[in-house]
Each structure stands twice: as structure tokens, then as C-alpha cells.
Design a protein around this nucleic acid. Sequence first.
DNA 1: CTGGATCCTGCCCGATACTG
DNA 2: CAGTATCGGGCAGGATCCAG
Lengths: 213, 213
Amino acid sequence: MAARDYGQYCGVTRALELVGERWALLIVRDLLVGPRRYGELAAGLPRIPSNILAARLKELQDAGIIRRAPRSRVIVYELTPYGRELEPVVLALGAWGFKAMGDPREEQIITPDSMTMALRTAFRPHVALHLPATVYGARLGPADLLVRVDGPTLDVTRGDGPADLAFAAGPDIHRLISGELAPDRAIATGVVEVLRGPGALLERFASTFHLAA
Amino acid sequence: MAARDYGQYCGVTRALELVGERWALLIVRDLLVGPRRYGELAAGLPRIPSNILAARLKELQDAGIIRRAPRSRVIVYELTPYGRELEPVVLALGAWGFKAMGDPREEQIITPDSMTMALRTAFRPHVALHLPATVYGARLGPADLLVRVDGPTLDVTRGDGPADLAFAAGPDIHRLISGELAPDRAIATGVVEVLRGPGALLERFASTFHLAA
DNA sequence: CTGGATCCTGCCCGATACTG
DNA sequence: CAGTATCGGGCAGGATCCAG
């Protein structure tokens, strides 16, 4: 621990000593969506070596950021209250990195949890406040997400269900969120495929979820 | 670059690919205070090996986060507009890490730039708004900082100058900012030494700069 | 099958010496 | 002053193996 110490009495260095290691903040990102089992975390971080995942989980536990909790006979990892306070950090990183994402490459995948956090990052409560409550069913790559917007609150859950608008999209949905692609153009070009409901609702979606590029 | 790629199409992973390496965000932290020469950066990051500093500067440049700029015959490094947008990330990390700082250890140092960013993190504009404009001269370890608070704006510069209250303190000032130590107790116990001006002004300072622990 | 632990290989970091 | 060169060590990466 002393070896990777930055030697400064400063909040930023302290934070980086705790969550600055490779993969650490991505584990936190996924746990911000909800408690996860070891295997679920591994599935959401396809390239992480199992020993690294195990090591990070142990370090994050020692730092009081996550804890192991028994859930009906199986162990899940969940954030402690202090770990949950990392949400502004993850959201700020996500918003900043969004602008540098560029076009998706072939080997880049989308995971349900990363998409969930991306939607939280792009959510504009002050805009949603003036729009009717809406439920979107979004099939994003392998992830089926149910996105409930009600006034200034957002709730994203996995799985299918009744929705005002159901649509499917790939990584190119990035261009819709950034405003580079207008909603009607997104449908016309096939970037977004409307599965159920009026396609015009995609406009509401795009104004609710937006990040400048 | 592909080796340290996370393989996900996600804003958080993209951000960590760009600034997730060791030392990278600390370089950004110092450059958020102002442009710095190579030697100034090295002085503010005492433990960084010179080859690592050189490598990070090159990577951050390639990523469009910093640029080399000639300033009257010498080269300085400065943030690009995109690099400056990392300020929310650094502030969020600083605020989160502040709570985990604990007591200062012997080998931990304080640098002027890290203290400047810490003050920016702890600054409460909505509180300062209702207080008279005040200039503090703060000698924090080796750093002489001139802290100007005027309404909701904060300006921190290096060096000495006329101040309403001048004081000296060590790392234990952390306990004043967190509220663990009341201003009058801080003076009584010698944590803060008043150099000039009315010690009562330290109360204003403590309410202007505060981070919960 | 889940949740790890244990190898080995290689690369990045750290420390220091050296140069334009 | 602003970096480059070099070398040792320690994490990361990947595959495999083990326990409940």
C-alpha cells in the first residue's frame, strides 16, 4: 500500500489511492446500478482477469467502499453508503468521456450496467420535469432496459415490460444522445428501430437524455 | 494503447483510458491551477519519476487534454478547453477523498497547487455570497496563498500580499475545514496561528470553506 | 456451476543515471 | 532545465486449477 502511495496530504491523491487502480471505478460503476454477484461483475467486465477482480473486491472492501452481503444463500457485493458517494465521480467521468467516445469499434461491447449509468449521466431532470411521465423499453445491444421517467426522477431496470415506446438500437445511439443525429433521422437511417409505440416519442427521449459532444 | 483498452463502448471506460493511468489526474489537478513548466510539475509531484512525467505529458497531449505553449522563451504546459472540462471530475474526487484523509502522516507533504484545488473544492459560493468580501493570507506548509473571496467568486493566487486575515497552518487545517475543530479551538490549540488581523475572521473562513467528513 | 486461488509471462512503474 | 536511457521489481493479463 505504501508503494502506490502518492505521498501527499490531499483529497484527490487519497481518492486515487483508493479507487485509482485499473478496473476499480468500473466495478463501482456497475455496483451503482445495484448489488451484483461475483459472476455478474465478471460478465459485465469481460476482459478483467479473475484474480484482478478478486483482488479489487478485497481492496474495495478493506477501504469500506463495498461489502459482501448474503442474499438468500448467495453472496452479493454491494456499495456501502460511502461507496455510493462515488456516484458524482462516476457521472462526471462518464459525461467527460462521452465526448471522446468517437465511433464504436467492432470489438467494443455494450453492457446493461454501463448503459444504465450512461442513461443516468445523460438524464436531464429539469427537462423531464416539464414532460409527461413516460416509459421506454430500450433494447440496447444485448441489454433490455425498462426506462421509467416520471417528472424529475429516473428509474432504469433490466428486463422487458409495458412501455409507451419500445425501440432497439446499437452503439450508434451515441449519435442520438449527442444531438448529432435527429430522432427522425435516426429512425429513417435505421440507427434506431421502433418496435412498439409511436416513433414520435423518440423525440421526447432525445430531449430527456442529452449530452453535448 | 490497445492493451490498456477496456473493450467497452462507454463514457466511463473512455475517460479512464485517457486519464486513468497513475499520476495523470494529478498532473491535470495542478494544471487546473494554471500553466506550469516541466520543472514546476515535477516539484508539485515529488515522487513522480521523470520518465513517467514525460510519458504522461506526451499521452495527455496526444489525447488533446493538454498542450505545450511557448511563454516568453520557455515552454509551459497548459490545459486545452477539453482538458479544463475535467475540473468537475477532479473536484468530485477531491471532495470524496477528503472524507478518507484521516490524520496526516509524517512523510505526507502539502503542495501549493493541491491546496489551491482543495480550497476550490471546499468553497461554498452560496455561503460566501452573504458574507463581506474578504482576503485571506494563508501560509499552508511551504505554500503562501492569497485567497480572495468576493461574493460567489473565489480567486487563489500564490504569493504574499495585503490580507484581512493572515494565518499559518499545517496539514491539520483539515480538521478545521471538516468542522471537527471549531475556529477558536483551532487557534487555542495552535493548529492555526494568526499572523495578522483579527482571529475572529477565522470563523468566516471556516464557514466559507467547508467539507463534511 | 459459482467463486475464487495459483501459476507464469510480460509490461508498466519506479529509481537513478545520464544528456542536449 | 527538460527531458531520455536503462534496469529491476511488481502489478496486470491470461490460462488453468481447486473448493463449496
